[in-house]
Design a protein around this nucleic acid. Structure first.
Lengths: 336, 336
DNA sequence: GTGAAAGCGCTAACAA
DNA sequence: TTGTTAGCGCTTTCAC
């Protein structure tokens, strides 16, 4: 069932069918109706592969997600999908695992699918000019920036929170509640990525309160997942008593941490206070509700699309947007 | 940068380049190396659109997921992806929302992308022959069956748990612990879908224990999500005292339910016991751990791929596999 | 307003 | 072993 069959069925040429199908103005209503009827009679669906090959412009945006199972990304993906559709672009979703190279993946995707632009959802903070040179279309980093790289600000876009400032804010909140022995849970304080930025904010908050960061209070999970987080915190809590609060750099880590603390005989918030950053849906349903700084998930997605589409359509150049979190005062932090 | 450029660059024909790229045996090592060098020199990436169009066989399997944000699906998607890759197929992921028609989506996907087969992850239980007729490739329903439809068993495949038997098992467990006033949380007991099947098992378990199902104990969430579940249970628990246990037809619903019970002044498991079906990762980290029947998520994915690939490669016909759950005895059920 | 025909970039006969 | 060439199904000039 091809466009030829449709053309034959209603006795017109393939180009006419193509025009009718693509809403070209210069097709008579009569012919248009005939074609549409044939399409539904024959259950014809255009072959998008052929269509993409023939079209000069495909109007497609790639969304490269690093770790699709991350619940923090779920609502962002949804928003980006809607945003692309509303702007008249097809969204091509591509998942890479956290060990894959998202830049290479994006580059291949662009080459092979003729994408107009790319949105990265989650990624490394240290892209270099050299490695981005193969990526010949505009792109925006969603939820992170190039803090540790050497990209020119004008060569890419980003929309994210200020990791350092926000984690500083989280830790200051703990300090304001009387905590001084504050542990931090992350995956690697020198990963040149999210953990390192949030670790920096943690240190800054402590120092400004005249507390010297204690390396012993840095909990490094082997991976950025629940199981690693649990093991790491459990192990720590089993041997240490001298901390009253924990700052987790992500909600998911915090959820596993709270369980680990519990299993180590420590209650949240009575024995240990916990605060995190992200604000995923499910952490709202913990008992007590997780205290966390909620990222503006919908706006992160909306702005990413807006920026990219503006660049693609020549309305603006690359931009960098910093958004703020909204504190969710749950029940996991107690004043000392 | 096309295959032509590569051909010109190393002075051979495009077909030779194509052969080298596709690992055809009849290419001399000398030429093959020359081509490979050109490819890397030129940073050439084949255009997959053109490739798919030209290839007779694309060897691609569509994965149509109904509600990609469902955390229960996450590990299944991962397994299916690996399985497809291992079997030499490309996996094309397509998400539809729970209000979309997954069959229409699959049909279009197949037509437009030339897929060899489809795996549905989550879907309606009442497909009719008429509506499936447009879907001209083999397909397997993963995590559900055609219980309420009229499909011939030989016309499709499925891999799922026995919803009715497993929910019967869950409820019987509650009964064995002394519970008799048992509520059920679902989205619609007559949805001709998962809720209806699990509701049937609930009723069966009760009747076999000589307990007449009480319509007042059927909690219908407006949607299959956390917020609806919370509202529905909160509302119920605020007015009713006469139930000692709750069976939630999914882990996610149970998580919100436990919070709602808590906010209504009821403790789990002291005042109300809770059991669910699914066994998602995060419910392991609740306090107390959610008691639930864990679906064999990895096997569900593996078997779906295995069945489909067997059908596609003519090794076997359509099959229907029923898998069993594994109880996770958490801490949300108390003996009366 | 409609048709004929030239590609889009690649693969796969068919020749050589 | 390699080259030539005819499509894959569609869009899009360019004529009419």
């Amino acid at each position: 069932m091809t466009i030829k069959d449709v053309a034959a069925y209603c006795g017109v040429s393939v180009s006419t069918v193509s025009r009718a199908l693509n809403n070209h103005p210069d097709v008579s209503d009569e012919v248009r109706n005939k074609v549409m009827k044939a399409v539904s009679d024959l259950h014809y669906t255009p072959n998008s592969t052929a269509r993409d090959l023939a079209r000069t412009q495909v109007n497609a945006i790639g969304l490269v997600v690093r770790g699709i199972s991350n619940p923090f990304f779920t609502p962002i993906i949804r928003t980006i999908e809607h945003g692309c559709e509303a702007a008249g672009y097809t969204m091509v979703l591509h998942q890479v695992s956290t060990t894959d190279d998202e830049v290479r993946a994006a580059t291949e995707l662009v080459q092979s699918k003729r994408l107009n632009g790319v949105i990265f959802l989650g990624g490394r903070y240290d892209y270099t000019k050299a490695e981005m040179q193969g990526l010949t279309v505009p792109y925006v980093c969603c939820t992170y920036t190039n803090h540790f790289g050497n990209l020119d600000r004008s060569s890419y876009s980003s929309v994210a929170i200020d990791d350092k400032a926000e984690s500083e804010r989280a830790v200051k909140y703990l300090i304001s509640r009387g905590h001084r022995r504050i542990a931090i849970l992350l995956d690697n304080p020198e990963d040149h990525s999210i953990s390192e930025r949030r670790y920096a904010g943690y240190c800054k908050a402590l120092r400004e309160a005249d507390i010297e960061p204690d390396p012993d209070l840095v909990l490094e999970a082997a991976d950025f997942d629940l199981a690693s987080s649990y093991r790491c915190v459990k192990d720590f809590a089993d041997r240490r008593e001298d901390f009253t609060a924990l700052f987790a750099v992500a909600d998911t880590l915090a959820i596993a941490a709270i369980k680990a603390l519990y299993d180590a005989g420590k209650r949240v918030p009575d024995d240990v206070s916990v605060i995190a950053i992200d604000g995923i849906e499910i952490s709202n349903y913990l008992i007590p509700t997780l205290t966390t700084l909620c990222q503006p998930k919908e706006r992160l997605g909306e702005e990413a699309v807006r920026i990219l589409v503006d660049v693609l359509e020549g309305r603006a150049g690359n931009r960098h947007i910093r958004l703020e979190t909204t504190p969710r005062l749950g029940g996991t932090v107690k004043s000392l």
